[in-house]
């Protein structure tokens, strides 16, 4: 599969191999990957994107597996993106989230992909936005993104997910730290997983008292749910809460605003790409060193260079 049009058609039909290859192109930052995401954007916009974040080991992947099984039984198609950290030293990564998702991913109505963060801060990978577009266009109703459980830097997920789920587990002091550090503001649904362990009620109470500190009457009061991801307990309630939030966004017209913001982001991205393209070409061109010299001496404005580059680009077209 080489041709991007062929891949785009395959993605729209929901074919796993086309989706997989499209995601690779996006991840590699290739031009045809960007083109793909731009062309498919109009076909996207119907999926509920659900972010899943929380400290390492609280059971996010296990929860994704259990949640996927329940969503499937309700007739939804499910796309999953799981992000793990890249080594800052070698750039390599071991992506192990799939281990916990084996029960759910073989299904034809499920697609799961592991991503390495590739040095991108914010708990996500640079490719996430484009990847969401692809999965959405491929017809998945629910897209689950598991992020690196970094604790403090996941605010970015708010811009990408309609609903962010914060997962905690009993008896983890640092989770309460995480709540204090600002994870509280990003969660629309709180999950206390491993509720089969002692202390789950205590964790629920701590979250509740933290939420009570919220300044005013919020339009959405985040529910706090207990789950046992290992045997699927609490999944019906969890899917209900997620559906509730989706309904809330729809009723309040927030969904349209979300789509508007994403579209703006897409355009901003495209404009930034044009700038990048211009500067890359300019640097490789014969006039570059003269311009740098002249701008340095003050005989030419940097702005003139920009205008000149733009003029040349237009002339060529």
């Amino acid at each position: 599969m080489k041709d991007w049009d062929e891949i785009a058609q395959g993605i729209l039909k929901g074919q796993k191999r086309a989706i997989a290859r499209g995601l690779t192109w996006i991840e590699q930052g290739r031009n045809d990957g960007k083109q793909l995401a731009q062309k498919l954007f109009a076909h996207a916009g119907h999926a509920q994107v659900i972010g899943i974040t929380g400290s390492p080991g609280v059971g996010k992947s296990t929860l994704v597996n259990a949640l996927t099984l329940t969503l499937r039984s309700q007739g939804f198609k499910v796309g999953i993106l799981a992000v793990d950290p890249s080594s800052p030293f070698t750039g390599g990564a071991i992506l192990g989230d799939r281990i916990r998702m084996q029960d759910s991913v073989m299904d034809a109505g499920v697609y799961m992909r592991s991503f390495a963060s590739r040095g991108h801060l914010g708990g996500l990978s640079r490719a996430t936005f484009g990847a969401l577009t692809i999965l959405d266009a491929a017809g998945f109703d629910k897209i689950l993104i598991e992020t690196v459980g970094a604790g403090q830097s996941e605010v970015e997920i708010m811009q990408l997910a309609h609903t962010t789920m914060v997962v905690l587990a009993p008896g983890m002091g640092d989770d309460i730290q995480a709540i204090k550090a600002g994870i509280l503001e990003i969660g629309q649904v709180f999950v206390v997983n491993k509720a089969d362990r002692d202390g789950a009620d205590h964790t629920v109470r701590s979250i509740r008292s933290m939420l009570a500190l919220a300044p005013e009457h919020p339009a959405w009061m985040p529910p706090i749910l207990k789950t046992v991801a290992e045997d699927g307990r609490g999944m019906e309630e969890l899917t209900e809460a997620l559906e509730h939030h989706w309904q809330h966004l729809t009723d309040k017209g927030l969904l349209d605003r979300f789509r508007w913001n994403q579209t703006e982001h897409l355009i901003e991205q495209a404009v930034a790409d044009v700038g990048e393209h211009l500067i890359r070409r300019a640097r490789a061109g014969p006039e570059w060193s003269h311009w740098v010299t002249e701008v340095g001496e003050g005989s030419r404005d940097a702005e003139h260079v920009a205008e000149e580059l733009w003029r040349q680009e237009l002339q060529e077209e």
């Binding site: 080594s87 070698t90 390599g92 071991i94 192990g96 799939r98 281990i99 084996q102 073989m106």
Partner: peptide, 20 residues
Amino acid sequence: ALRDAGMEVVYTGLHQTPEQ
């Protein structure tokens, strides 16, 4: 070893069927 060589390694755990 492959991770340390800068590769991205997906590990799926034990007991996989050929289909998986």
